[in-house]
Write a protein that binds this DNA or RNA. Structure first.
Lengths: 346, 346
DNA sequence: CGCCCAGATAATAGCGCTACGAAATCCATG
DNA sequence: CATGGATTTCGTAGCGCTATTATCTGGGCG
């Protein structure tokens, strides 16, 4: 083996440029460099220019790890969502990023996949970064997670759901009420034989809540309601399969899908079967995904208040950031609402 | 104001539990606690149990910021993608996360939105975290970004594209060749009057490459090729609009969309117009999005090797992690290929 | 029965930066 | 030209942890 060279195997030192190097080059103290980086206005123009020049010359890249340790808290916001499969979660993340990034806050992301175990691991590692805030999806968590969240001093936001006694600040909307509103809409359209199509609702508790609200209202009205469910992730393909089941059952004249993706699949298969929407069967989704406005027929759906959720959370995180005297809103519940978008499919 | 209390405004100390606290509770030295956390096997069972008990009792959460500083490198991988609007990027991120998370690596995410300026800011902050690796989308970057990337010692992966002389390790496929292959397919089907539908290709250079490859092959074959483009983000709605333009032009019998989302919109509008796919017009997309298999008609599309990209990157990151003697693959180009999925739309 | 080696535990020395208070500088007054 | 207050700059002391080295412990063996 031609492996040789000065045995420098340990401590991958690398010639990393440190703040001290910059200070030396600019002929100032490290403190001044640090100050210039954090609050440039408090450094005189002359010195500032010199420091800036040194930084550029040396290609200095600050070390946030060291900075975070010294400052006791990192400029990172950790976001935990079930997955990115639903475009509304990607949108939430996107929107939050765009609000937080200008403040120099970075996004640490994790996917729980609706698994308590994964969630615990993620919460644990997230907290280990001493983030400026932790944003987590949903209100119900396993006991281990609950304990971690209750104990931490990191500002906590539980999003996408409202409910009683949140651990942190709850920002979201009432999924049960969405189910009810959807049911009312279908009943208003004169449909009496309804179905809820879902996918893995044991895991997606929010879809479960929408389903529960739906059933409640339908049954209270004395109409029929069936639940059809597939043990797979929601997809257009799953929608196709569910539509076949609907056909088998027969007589169903109104359908609420747990998700627009499912509903899209239903439109495809309905067309192939010759089932006319909405004449033969009214169809509703959830999520207000982009294509619902242009598909055939355009879909009635519910727009979750993604932007408002992100805005409210972002605002609070920024408020609290750099101003630890900001009011602690833990325990507060903010309902951002939802919007029923009625289109031709009903 | 009832604000009073011992003037403890500074240094938000919080009663954070440190490793030293754990050590004290377990009657061992901090070193032992640290060792137990990092390599439990090297601690005797008796002591290990004691430490574990203390950790649980105190609810200790390690501080990765401090750990990262001491160890000179954080257990974070930074991923920069244009956005999450395209499901193939979300999938890349998802897949990478699932590979990296079991190794205790967290994902720091950023969205460039195809903006050089944003990209620079993101690269800068990413590097500031001294991540275990930086994964960035694409091969071409502004001069400032190039300089940062060339200078850093952080393992760099440039994904989703192949090309010459990458700065880090390039893992992706040849978009030009996808354009060519798509064109060949359409020509094989006897189409002679073709169009490429795109959205904001000035920004999405990879879509631009597919377009270029497409035009090259079509024109070489002596057939017609038009480019129709909209200055908006790709969406089904944009697809609808582009289909209207196609109609206006008239005579087009084969279309390649820069993206399945666009293609989906085209199918909707074509149906409304009475344009039959593929009889009147063949249609292709890109991305192999989930619904392409079940929509009406099922779409011919190209499956980018998302999984392979993620796997190859993940493997290399893990190799290099904790074993800095692993081969540095910078400069290497790995072509993960793509797959043409032929369905009824052509 | 003492000696040595391996394995387990502990002590030490920072990692690169920020917060804080002290020192130095500036500049308008008296 | 001295003087005080407002700036601007600097020195010091860690932040909580890990890597490395040193120390300790407990057998196995001559």
């Amino acid at each position: 083996m031609h492996e040789s060279g000065p045995k420098q195997r340990n401590r991958r030192k690398m010639q990393t440029v440190t703040m001290t190097d910059v200070a030396r080059a600019a002929q100032v103290s490290p403190s001044t460099v640090s100050l210039f980086l954090r609050r440039p206005a408090e450094v005189s123009e002359r010195i500032g220019a010199r420091v800036k020049r040194a930084i550029d010359d040396l290609g200095y890249v600050p070390n946030f790890v060291a900075g975070g340790l010294a400052a006791a808290g990192s400029r990172v916001v950790s976001i935990l969502v079930p997955s990115l499969h639903n475009s509304y979660f990607s949108e939430t993340v996107t929107r939050l990023e765009s609000i937080l990034a200008p403040q120099g806050l970075q996004i640490l992301i994790g996917f729980t996949e609706h698994s308590e175990q994964r969630e615990e691991r993620l919460v644990r590692t997230s907290l280990s970064w001493r983030p400026a805030a932790l944003v987590i999806t949903g209100l119900s968590h396993g006991p281990a997670v609950r304990k971690l969240l209750e104990k931490t001093s990191v500002p906590l936001f539980q999003m996408w759901e409202t409910g009683e006694a949140p651990i942190g600040t709850a920002i979201g909307f009432d999924h049960r009420e969405i189910g009810r509103a959807s049911a009312r809409h279908l009943l208003d359209r004169g449909r009496r034989n309804l179905a809820f199509l879902g996918a893995r609702m044991d895991q997606d508790t929010r879809a479960g809540q929408r389903c529960a609200g739906f059933l409640e209202t339908v049954r209270t009205a004395g109409a029929e309601a069936t639940v059809l469910e597939l043990p797979v992730i929601a997809s257009a393909e799953a929608g196709v399969e569910l539509m076949r089941k609907v056909r088998e059952i027969g007589g169903i004249d109104g359908v609420l899908c747990s998700n627009d993706t499912l509903a899209l699949g239903v439109t495809f298969e309905a067309r192939r079967m010759g089932v006319r929407i909405p004449q033969d069967m009214a169809l509703m989704g959830f999520g207000a995904m982009e294509y619902t406005g242009v598909c055939e027929p355009p879909l009635t759906t519910v727009r979750p208040s993604v932007d408002r959720i992100a805005n409210e959370i972002g605002k609070r995180i920024i408020d609290r950031d750099g101003n630890q005297d900001a009011p602690d809103t833990h325990g507060e519940v903010i309902d951002t609402g939802f919007e029923l978008i009625v289109r031709e499919s009903t």
